[in-house]
Amino acid sequence: MNHENKQQAVRSMLKKLSQVKREEGGLKSFVMRSIRLDGSEEEILEEMAQWFLAVRDLSKQGALPSRFSLSEFIPVFCRIAEDKNIGADRFFSGVLEKMVLESEEVLRGAPKPSTKDKILDAALDVFSEKGFHLATVDEIAERAGVGKGTLYRYFANKETLFNELVQLRLDELEKSAMAILDGEDDVLTMITKYLRVYFEFFDQNQRLYRLIVQEGLDVGDQVQDLYFKKVMRRIPLLKRKIYGARQQGLLKDVDFHTVFYGVMGFMHGVIQKWLARDCSYSLVEELPGVVEVLFYGFVNTSKFVESQN
């Protein structure tokens, strides 16, 4: 995830921060639920450093809730690093290294967004504010700072522009998801990582997805169908991993396709609940409960047995 997307993820998480107790324990618990702490030591260090710098940038922008300051996050990240046997010194070395790289990019001159990227960013803003049907090409061109003729050189019409906006986001999701599905993790770890990537995608692209749903655009069903097809390409690998897990006694002997579509349907049910509640919380916060239900069900077996006796 690039730095801009990380900032968006942090901003989404901060919607819940007003409910966190001011004590360090409450803030630490919030941060640990929000960031990704699985993977290798290097991956955890990279994730923590990215989040810390994203919090720093939001603090500089005045986007942190007034109840909190950057200084309150510093001991929290130190404690988490120590819990992961990374050590505060190593954590801050990683942060410093990233800051140095940032400075070098500034000195070299960070690459400017292309005209096409400016148009796509402006389109998302205008679509989100006005809705797809009420948004006009003139407004998008004006927001992007380009002439209408320039916009038409890149996109034939408003529909083409919107479809490319969706496709670009889907390509990002596919790349992240396929890296997990093509990995060497055991099947349960793979599913957990896959769910996280999927929920992170909706957290970071909630404006686009809400637009699709609220406007009743046909592309909504196309997004889901297209994504299913992309995932289905990896089914042979998933089947092999599931077969191995069955041989080890980790999984029950159930029909693969029933489970696959059941999992996808459950995930979209969780997303629909999130949309119904106006995306007021992070989907990633739902992950532990989702994994618990998918892997172990929602019935307390011992209590159920007692009730039947």
Rank of each mutant, 00 (worst) to 15 (best):
L168Q: 06
H3T: 09
M32G: 03
G26M: 10
D89E: 08
L37S: 01
S18E: 10
E292N: 11
S29F: 01
A141T: 12
E200L: 04
T301I: 13
A141W: 08
I119M: 05
K241Q: 15
R210G: 07
F73S: 08
F52E: 09
D83R: 08
G39E: 05
R56C: 12
M178I: 13
L165F: 00
K60P: 00
N5W: 01
L37M: 05
A49C: 10
K98R: 15
L70Y: 13
A179N: 10
E46A: 03
D255N: 11
V100Y: 11
V187S: 11
P65A: 08
E292W: 04
D253E: 13
S282T: 14
R79I: 14
L275R: 06
E46L: 02
K84C: 05
L70V: 11
V231K: 03
K273A: 07
E104G: 09
I80C: 04
E306A: 10
L14C: 08
L161A: 09
E105L: 07
V305L: 09
D125Y: 00
P236N: 12
K98L: 14
V219C: 00
D182R: 13
Q61G: 05
E200G: 03
G147F: 01
K116S: 05
K98C: 09
A179I: 03
Y152D: 04
